[in-house]
Amino acid sequence: MAGMSRAPSPNPDVVRFASRGSSHFDVLLALFCVVIVVSNVVATKAIEFGSGSLTVGPVQVWPLVTDGGVVLFPLAYVLGDVISEVYGLRAARRAILTGFAAAALAAFAFFVVQLMPAASWYENQPAYEAVLGPVSQIVLASLAGYLAGQFLNSWVLVRMKQRSAEHRLVARLVGSTGVGEVADTLIFCAIAASAIGITTFGTFLNYFVMGVVLKVGIELALMPVTVRVIAWLKRREPGYFDR
């Protein structure tokens, strides 16, 4: 209406972060922990795409090798990006350490239950050990890679945001993801490879490269969703644009 003044648009050159004491952050944190725990369990299955064999020198080019963790684990980086962008490095650190604790607790429970004597009628102990036995090694690999990758991901994103404020969101999402995923996947594959039966350097290299390509590819495919979720949270977090 004429004569009514509009609220000024938020200054895009100001670096802002929302308070983590909101229900939105709680939901993101819960999802983050579930993704980490479930990814560690499904990562015990080795996956191979293709048949036959193609090698270049010592490197296996075909078939392509990965593990079940690739299905869900990229969402951990999507959620990490959202938390880092909206809530900042301190909130991201809390999410990372909480996810670490949840994964460690799950691995401890699997290990203790495996050692407990099975009932006389229980016939699935070998299957339990085959599926959940490697989880401890997978969790060790995941936690080592996860800590390095997630902290690098959050650190790079927040540092880039401190330089560009509300500008260049996609650039910092892509840049932080690339750095974090390469570090994470290299450390994870180095520790976890033997747990899923990888014994040669050529197969290991295939496993590492496939892991990076698939994880980064999934995150890039989800980028439009990530950007929209971040924009939605920024509009609805009390005080974000008041800072």
Rank of each mutant, 00 (worst) to 15 (best):
G3L: 12
S5R: 10
A7V: 13
A7K: 11
P8A: 15
S9R: 15
P12G: 07
P12H: 09
P12C: 06
R16F: 07
R20Y: 06
R20K: 10
G21V: 01
D26P: 00
V27A: 08
V27L: 11
L28W: 08
L28I: 10
A30S: 13
A30W: 08
A30R: 05
F32L: 06
F32S: 03
C33A: 14
C33D: 01
V34F: 07
V34C: 06
V38S: 01
S39P: 00
S39I: 03
N40V: 03
N40L: 01
V41N: 02
A43D: 00
A43Y: 02
T44R: 05
K45M: 09
A46C: 05
I47P: 02
E48K: 13
S51F: 10
G52T: 12
T55W: 01
V56Y: 04
P58A: 09
Q60D: 05
L64A: 14
V65H: 13
T66A: 09
D67Q: 08
G68L: 09
G68A: 05
A76N: 11
Y77W: 11
L79P: 07
L79G: 04
G80S: 15
D81C: 12
V82Y: 00
E85A: 13
L89V: 04
R90L: 06
A91I: 12
R94F: 10
A95K: 07
A95M: 11
I96S: 06
I96R: 05
L97H: 06
F100K: 02
A101L: 14
A102Y: 13
A103N: 05
A103Q: 08
A104S: 12
A106M: 14
A106I: 03
A107T: 07
F110H: 07
V112T: 15
V112D: 06
M116P: 01
A118S: 15
A118P: 08
W121M: 08
W121Y: 11
E123G: 09
Y128M: 05
Y128P: 04
Y128L: 06
E129V: 15
P134S: 11
Q137P: 00
I138Y: 12
S142W: 10
L143A: 01
A144I: 11
Q150N: 10
Q150E: 15
Q150H: 15
F151G: 08
F151Q: 10
S154A: 15
R159E: 09
M160Q: 10
Q162M: 12
S164H: 15
S164Q: 14
H167Q: 12
L169I: 12
R172N: 08
L173W: 06
S176T: 08
S176R: 04
G178N: 11
G180I: 07
V182M: 07
T185G: 04
F188Q: 02
C189W: 04
C189P: 02
C189Q: 09
C189M: 10
A190F: 13
A192L: 04
A193N: 12
S194A: 13
S194D: 01
G197H: 00
G197D: 02
G197T: 02
F201G: 13
G202R: 03
M210P: 00
V212A: 12
V213T: 10
V213W: 02
K215R: 05
V216I: 14
I218Y: 12
P224M: 03
A231H: 14
W232I: 04
W232L: 10
W232G: 01
K234Q: 13
R236Y: 00
R236D: 00
E237P: 04
E237L: 01
E237M: 00
